[in-house]
Computed example of a mutant assay.
Amino acid sequence: MYPQNPNAYEKHYGAQPPPYAQHATTGFPVSSGSSYVASTTTDSDSLFQTSSLPPPYRVQPKPRVDWSTGLCDCTSDVRNCCITCWCPCITFGQIAEIVDKGSTSCGASGALYTLVACVTGCACLYSCFYRSKMRQQYLLKEQPCCDCLIHCCCESCALCQEYRELQNRGFDLRIGWHGNVEQRNRELAMTAATAPPTEQGMSR
């Protein structure tokens, strides 16, 4: 199915990357469209299985990274710790809006979290899925144990850790996804306006 000779591959595809080596891009928003400023990361769920391909065309999965803060480092942000302790629906809603890239609002996610908590008494059954989704986006390690167990035993600590992780990645969770998009666009516009002009070539 795939040419064994690299020269034959180059003749067929040219300098373009192979179709099965496309990468999923996640990260900080630049605009409300499909552009992002981020490092290219490989999402194993969104790529074709390439383990059976010959070595020149095989996509190597990127290693998982540690969380920027520990599960019990809540004292580094006392304000968020208090909010999460008394109203976890607020923190969860802010996290969910960023993880969903604005497709759901903070209010809607927080209300659904409260509804699940009132009906089942275990809102952690809902929030743990967002921890898994967030780990897939940023290739974070599943530590210190599985996502479901962390949320069942330490719901408040887990939410605080996720909040800090997004905050350390440049997001202001208080203004939501679209607020971050607008803020980033303003910063880029200011940078472009203050950039020194490029030198013109010599004219004859």
Score class of each variant (00 low, 15 high):
C157K: 11
C160P: 11
C148V: 15
Q161V: 01
L115K: 10
E97D: 08
L149N: 08
R169N: 01
D147M: 01
Y113T: 00
R186E: 11
S156W: 05
V99W: 01
Y113A: 12
S105R: 05
S103E: 06
S103F: 02
V181G: 01
R186S: 15
T104V: 15
Y138N: 03
G201T: 14
K141E: 08
C106H: 12
R174C: 08
F129L: 11
L166Y: 05
I150E: 02
G179W: 13
E155H: 01
E187V: 04
V181T: 00
G107T: 10
N185I: 07
E142H: 15
R186D: 08
Q136I: 13
G176E: 00
K101I: 07
Q161S: 00
V181R: 00
T191H: 06
A117F: 13
C154S: 12
C157H: 09
Q200M: 12
I175V: 13
T194R: 09
D172N: 13
P197M: 03
H178I: 06
Y130R: 01
R184N: 10
C124H: 12
D147L: 02
Y126R: 02
P197G: 01
T114M: 01
E165I: 08
Y138R: 03
R169P: 02
H151P: 02
E199Q: 14
G110E: 01
N180F: 08
M134F: 04
A123P: 10
C145W: 11
Q167W: 04
S109I: 00
V181C: 02
E165A: 10
K133Y: 09
L139C: 07
A195F: 14
P196Y: 03
C118S: 13
Y138K: 07
G201E: 12
A96H: 11
C118H: 11
I150S: 04
A123V: 05
F129K: 15
T104P: 03
T114L: 07
G201S: 09
M190N: 12
S156D: 04
E199D: 10
E165G: 06
E199R: 09
V116L: 00
K133M: 12
Q143G: 00
C145L: 15
Q143L: 12
P196Q: 14
Y163G: 02
L139H: 10
C153M: 07
P196D: 09
R135D: 09
A123T: 10
R186K: 14
C148G: 02
A117Y: 09
A189L: 04
E162G: 07
A117E: 14
G170F: 03
T104H: 12
G201M: 13
V99I: 04
K133L: 03
R164S: 08
F129S: 14
T198K: 12
T198C: 15
V119R: 01
C160D: 02
G110S: 02
E187T: 11
L112E: 04
R169Y: 03
S105F: 03
G201I: 12
T198G: 14
I98D: 05
A96M: 07
A96V: 07
L140F: 09
L112H: 01
C146S: 15
N168Y: 04
R174T: 04
E199P: 11
N180M: 14
N168F: 08
R184H: 10
D172I: 12
V119S: 07
Y126S: 10
C145Y: 15
F171G: 05
